Computed example of a mutant assay.
Amino acid sequence: MRKQMEEKLKSAQSQVIHQEKLAAIGQIAAGVAHEINNPLAFIKSNFDTLEKYFYKYKEVIEVYQRFKGNLREEEQLKLENINLIIEEIESIERKNNISFINEDLEELFRDSNEGIDRVNEIIKELRMFSRRGQTDIFEDYDLNEGIKNTLVVARNILKYQVQVEEYLEEIPIIHAIGGEINQVLLNLLLNATYAIKEKQPEIGLIKIRTFAKDDDVYCELEDNGIGIEEKNISSIFDPFFTTKPVGEGTGLGLSIAYDIITNKHHGAITVESTKGVGTKFMIKLPIHQAFN
């Protein structure tokens, strides 16, 4: 009976954690869709402009072709006829503003290429982020790369309210379950953004720093949000503990982060916070796991 109750409890916990993950994925997916939509909309606008330019050039080229046809039909065109054709060409070039189009085309192609590169970058980072989440196997993991991937995925959520400063030192590759570390980073970023939003400064600030010491690597994530009351600091890693209003969160984000860092990766996660000033989380991860 007790064993059945334990299994039911584990199953319920697993379902709640899965729902938490899905909620985060849904939020990020909406942000990524928006991030991709911006350069795509710009490329579409440039394409519409290029289409208009094409028809303007087509009109000019038709005059050139007619002139070429006249040259083939007559061995010698009269000078006055040549002058009339040249005047017609110049008139159509002015009407279609060909000199401006010549200048604008370079910028259109350059901007469109930048937009395409931006979409490619987002897709590449998203694929790397999601690929890391498809395995529970410890493997080589670059914490700095994980931070950058997570920031790209969360960019749309951050960019309207938060400035992110990165101080990423050269650190060794570690053994970790990359997708789970990325999930921790994402949870901390979302929490920091929420805290900043609650404080409502003109511009929020998140500082991310990495460094290595002895046999561990560290990630320090600090925000200038609303902070945590001292009486709540000892409870923030407890399952279902949350100071957010009903419907704003399950309180599982930091509990999951604690489990991933301490139990699965044999590291440590600590927090310092001052109400009204901000919060700083410190993650410590061993470079090599004990079983490696």
Rank of each mutant, 00 (worst) to 15 (best):
M1N: 13
Q4F: 06
M5D: 08
K8L: 11
K8P: 03
L22I: 05
G26Y: 08
Q27K: 15
A29T: 15
V32A: 07
H34Y: 13
H34G: 13
E35M: 12
N37Q: 11
N38L: 14
I43Y: 05
N46M: 02
F47Y: 06
K52H: 04
Y55M: 14
E59K: 12
E62P: 08
Q65I: 11
R66D: 13
L71S: 09
L71F: 13
L77K: 02
E80M: 05
I82K: 10
L84K: 15
I85S: 10
E87Q: 03
E90L: 15
K95Y: 02
K95A: 12
I98Y: 08
S99M: 11
N102I: 05
F109L: 05
D111L: 05
D111I: 04
G115Q: 14
E121M: 12
S130Q: 09
R131K: 13
E139C: 05
N144Y: 03
T150V: 06
V153G: 03
R155E: 08
N156Y: 04
K159F: 02
V164W: 04
E165P: 01
E165W: 07
E166D: 03
Y167T: 06
E169W: 00
E180F: 00
I181N: 00
T193F: 03
E198K: 10
E198M: 06
K199N: 11
P201A: 02
E202G: 04
E202F: 11
K207D: 01
K207M: 06
K213A: 15
C219Q: 02
L221N: 00
E230L: 13
K231T: 12
N232T: 00
N232V: 01
T243N: 14
K244C: 15
P245C: 09
E248Y: 14
G249Y: 04
S255F: 09
A257Q: 00
A257W: 00
Y258G: 00
D259Q: 14
I260Y: 01
I260R: 01
N263Y: 08
H266L: 07
A268V: 03
S273I: 02
K275F: 04
I283V: 12
K284L: 07
L285R: 03
I287T: 09
I287R: 02
N292P: 02
